[in-house]
Design a protein around this nucleic acid. Sequence first.
DNA 1: GAGCTGGTAGTCAAGTTTGACTAGCGAGGG
DNA 2: CCCTCGCTAGTCAAACTTGACTACCAGCTC
Lengths: 220, 220
Amino acid sequence: MRPTLDRMSVIRLLVLGAVRQHGRAHGYQVRNDLEYWGAHEWSNAKPGSIYHALKQMARQGLLHAHEIAPSTAGGPPRTEYEITEPGTEEFFRLLREALTSYDQKPDVFSAGLGLMVDLERAEALALLEQRLRSIEEWRRAVTEYYTPEEGPGQLGHIGEIMDLWVHSADTGAAWTRGLVERVRSGAYTFAGEGEPFIGVLAEGEENPYATGERHPGDAR
Amino acid sequence: MRPTLDRMSVIRLLVLGAVRQHGRAHGYQVRNDLEYWGAHEWSNAKPGSIYHALKQMARQGLLHAHEIAPSTAGGPPRTEYEITEPGTEEFFRLLREALTSYDQKPDVFSAGLGLMVDLERAEALALLEQRLRSIEEWRRAVTEYYTPEEGPGQLGHIGEIMDLWVHSADTGAAWTRGLVERVRSGAYTFAGEGEPFIGVLAEGEENPYATGERHPGDAR
DNA sequence: GAGCTGGTAGTCAAGTTTGACTAGCGAGGG
DNA sequence: CCCTCGCTAGTCAAACTTGACTACCAGCTC
């Protein structure tokens, strides 16, 4: 009965990160933070998924659920969540994986970027450099593997797909190198460096980046 | 009761494309083609999803299912599928959308690339140029929207996420321009240009790009 | 002072995706 | 001859995702 060390899930990482930064948060707060981070644009952070992840991780012991009396301002009875010790471990495991692994799904890395300041600067740098090595290794494997002996071009237009992946990997690596430079030169405030960047919305603070669009889940 | 014009689904596009190129195909053949295209690498083309899509689209009338007696070479009774007229329409609708829209999910575009030669060259070029305009529009919307009045940098490290998206959009546009050049100069064989590129495996042909890895669904 | 709008907070059923599992057959080894 | 391995072909339950829906309250309008 190990602590559910399953595969990477962006939602789980984002939700754990949001709850952790608040100390204690209910679903709607998490939902708002993820919108503040723009996560609904680059990941599948929809209300249903968020509430599902909260409940699921509470069942698995990664979060502790506090039932709150249906207090202020009506609505259904809310539940507040707090991150547990196993939850914190899982959070860092997912975060480290998001920053180092190259799986060409950009949402995972974006989530890692949004939460990287929860690590210490030195570790973040090390992970990003590991990421560069992962990209290089991926590139080598793919180009070796998909280059037929009869020379390139044997693949016809299907080869364009591979070319696109490789191009994305290369430009992704270049961008990561730029980020490494910025972080190395002191950009941003990482864990243990004093006043952290405020990455969540305080209770009642208005969201300057809220989209005008309705969420699908909103009542008319 | 419209012909199920729902949202983009990579699996549906890929499966329709594979069945259409075969004329008539059973699930395992489709599964093999998608592996031949490398789709298991850059999309969620797992066996379960493929069989589900086949059944689903047969129910919706996009495919016609022929029950085949459990004939050659044992195994469970197979079903062969043929694309219908509504299925063909849906296929081209999805294909055009995959090539023009920019939703920063690279799997959709990759699928479009793999199937673009099912269109005529002129149309493919027009769609790719439309894609370039979509990217530009997306870029304008995002940079306007997420640039605070207090100047850039107000976002802290969260701004890196946006920078990554914008960078990806720019390099994606550059790559697309290269592709447009290649296609304009006569690369590849498009619909109505004689002998088409063989994009599927014939019955019994071995797959030169099959991975040595097991699929998750394989028996031990 | 009734009704409308908008924000807060969350549920739910339907649909999709996942990875593990089943099952038949042929080839080859011992 | 029997047993295992690998290939063909597909099923299934559990998990996840989705978008529509509920419900409450406050403020405003008419």
